[in-house]
Amino acid sequence: MIDYMIYLLAFIIGLIVGLLYSYKKHVEPYILKGLEIPALIIAILGWILVINFHFNIVLFAIGLFLVGFVIGERPGYGRGETLIGVGVGLLIHIIIRVFSMLW
């Protein structure tokens, strides 16, 4: 059960860090439209780790931290980045599965 606690803590720390980062970066009282490149890179990296490296405690925890970072951003931010991250993570998972089946 300790591994689940580590995962939860990593995710929650990611949520809090993402929230603090987002509020520091966006002080305006409205939401800016469009994707943010740094958050997009973090989301893609995070979801790749979460979907494809769930067997490794350290990589999975890092993935959850990164995923939490983007999900935890100020309300209105991080949605598009998360969706793209999930898509890329799943795509890489499918590619790895197909290649492993072929070889």
Binding site: L15, L19, I71, G72, E73, P75
Partner: peptide, 11 residues
């Protein structure tokens, strides 16, 4: 409504 971040209850 936009609602609070999901970590808000914990905070």
């Amino acid at each position: 409504r936009p609602g609070p971040p999901i970590v808000q209850y914990l905070l």
